[in-house]
Write a protein that binds this DNA or RNA. Structure first.
Lengths: 343, 343
DNA sequence: AATCACTTCCAAACCGCTTTGGATGCCAGA
DNA sequence: TCTGGCATCCAAAGCGGTTTGGAAGTGATT
């Protein structure tokens, strides 16, 4: 059932039927209800392919999921972010187009999305320092919003980010206020922008209390359980071992916890841990009472908001970049406590 | 730059240019190379919207990500599956369309994907027992492949699944061969089809050795770390505690391990654990040597293969359902060992 | 020389919708 | 009675490709 058929069935022109269904004013209210009823009755749904061609709009947003060809990591926060963004798209009648590409094909993919007219805009994931994608997208004129930021980028661009620096600053201060002086920092890979900012927050908090950073207490790697375990184990073996840890994710935090417990230490008493909690639904941080003290910021919510920003950007004639900085919550769980006196 | 412009620039008709680019035989080889060169030079890419309208094909595959409205779980294997499927789509020139919908809107979403012509087919995720989606999709005539199976479904349908029953049968036998007799089973939610099959495998192995199942050793819940921990802790507190565990995922297995270790027991010596490893890239089971003994089956590979099946189904005129059962590997790690003699 | 089969190209219809630029009829106001 | 404005509808031209049904030219065959 298409527009033309429906029109003839109603004894109207396709023009009028189209206008009736799309809420244009130049159509009698009575005919409009008739048309709407008939559309319902005949189960008519306009062909999106035709709409897209006629309007010149894709009514779709692209997400490019880059797969680092070397270590082939699929970002664990991706699913939750996508779920949030998807909620926005459903609500606004947009489609979400997902492209999975190797790093080296990423630039070509963006250009194709633009030149083939597959999408009206894209969301850029996992920005790095001096990320080349930003200048490229600005150049080809494809609207985009970055989830995160890219230190070192000079061209203005739209982004939504969590205040990672401030979150880790506060977490570090919290530990310092509990009397901890040696704080192990288990960070993610530091070519990622968020990891750099987190380190800066950590260092800033130490500096404010005139505590010199100790390279042996700073670690950076993939955020896996094993990596967290290995890092914490190494630090715990130091002669002057840390009394607290800061971990960049739930998963690496679980590794740190394992190292702590297998060293015969009790979490929250002998050793404190603060993690960053992306509030992933399959990695809940306890039910009512949080297990880990954490800086929390929902990635799913970030997905919702980033998608909204992009759609605004697409529909607004004003292309001024939009920026939004979310603050993480600091939630107190059972994994932190005052430093133990050395006996 | 569009077809018509390119054609005038070349002094040819749009027909010929289109044919030249699409490899039709009725065009001189010399002109074809000229056309291809010009397309390259002017950076011409055909407008997908127009192609889709003209051909009546969407050149896209839909993935509907249902969000259980109550517990709002985003499946952790989703990202890896999508990454695998995406590889296939890129290779075959298909787009991937992702819809995130509430459970109750799912049926409507499929119907819309069909009637609006947004996709040529869909992949069905996370099938349950007697899943109603299968009959519905068959009825509306939208090609689909199920990732997993749906026990109780009578209409034939295409699917790709891991042999979950056999995997857990083998895992249980492996533990039995090591002398274990009391094996705790930490399963996923048992309205999910894969969880039912896993339980069947477990029970079958026990039955083959004439070991009666013990309800206190069987647990079913979300596959989170905390749930795994809680289940294992409870079982370990039993007067006749288990000497081995079977866990349905890496994450719940980590919870089981924590319970074991915090009970002061040594993994692989006092207690054995076998998990099911979906080979998610952000949850690696060790590097060279696997940490956990596991039944392993790559979800990413499953994504690749499922997508291939669907594209075959779409392009083949023969609509006979295709079926494919993958076998999981049993890989031996450090988490299993012979049962300890009760001293 | 006429016929035929190929090769190579093109004009035009078509996919299903939106949107522009009227056309028609009716009523109020001059 | 005529004019202008308004409400309501429609024909037709698009969007940018694909595809059908020739047409023109060439060379071989009769």
């Amino acid at each position: 059932m298409n527009l033309k058929e429906l029109a003839t069935k109603l004894g109207l022109s396709p023009t009028t039927v189209s206008r009736a269904l799309n809420g244009y004013p130049e159509v009698n209210e009575e005919t409009r209800t008739r048309v709407v009823a008939a559309a319902q009755r005949y189960n008519y749904a306009p062909n999106t392919r035709a709409i897209r061609l006629a309007t010149g709009r894709a009514l779709a947003v692209g997400h490019v999921l880059p797969l680092a060809t070397r270590h082939e990591i699929v970002n664990p926060i991706f699913a939750d972010f996508i779920a949030g963004a998807g909620e926005t798209y459903s609500r606004q009648g947009y489609d979400m187009l997902l492209s999975v590409v190797n790093d080296e094909d990423e630039s070509r993919t963006y250009r194709q999305l633009k030149s083939r007219g597959s999408v009206d805009g894209v969301i850029v994931h996992a920005p790095r320092m001096n990320d080349p994608r930003i200048a490229m997208l600005a150049e080809i004129g494809l609207p985009f919003v970055v989830h995160g930021r890219a230190t070192g980028t000079t061209t203005p661009y739209s982004w939504l980010d969590v205040n990672n620096r401030r979150a880790f600053l506060r977490a570090t201060e919290f530990l310092l206020d509990l009397g901890h002086r040696r704080i192990g920092f288990v960070n993610g890979l530091e070519f990622m922008d968020f990891a750099i900012r987190r380190r800066n927050g950590y260092l800033e908090a130490l500096a404010a209390r005139h505590i010199p950073p100790d390279a042996t207490l700073m670690f950076s790697d993939e955020m896996t359980e094993n990596a967290g375990y290995a890092a914490a184990q190494r630090m715990l073996a130091l002669p002057d071992r840390p009394t607290a840890f800061l971990a960049s994710s739930m998963i690496s935090g679980m590794g740190v916890r394992r190292a702590v417990e297998s060293a015969g230490l009790v979490l929250g008493r002998d050793i404190s841990i603060i993690i960053h909690d992306d509030d992933l639904s399959y990695l809940p941080n306890g039910k009512e009472v949080p297990i880990f003290t954490a800086t929390r910021s929902s990635v799913r919510e970030a997905g919702r908001l980033t998608a909204e920003m992009l759609i605004d950007l697409i529909n607004d004639t004003d292309p001024t970049p939009r920026e939004r900085l979310l603050e993480a919550d600091l939630i107190i769980g059972q994994s932190t406590g005052p430093v133990q006196k050395v006996s």
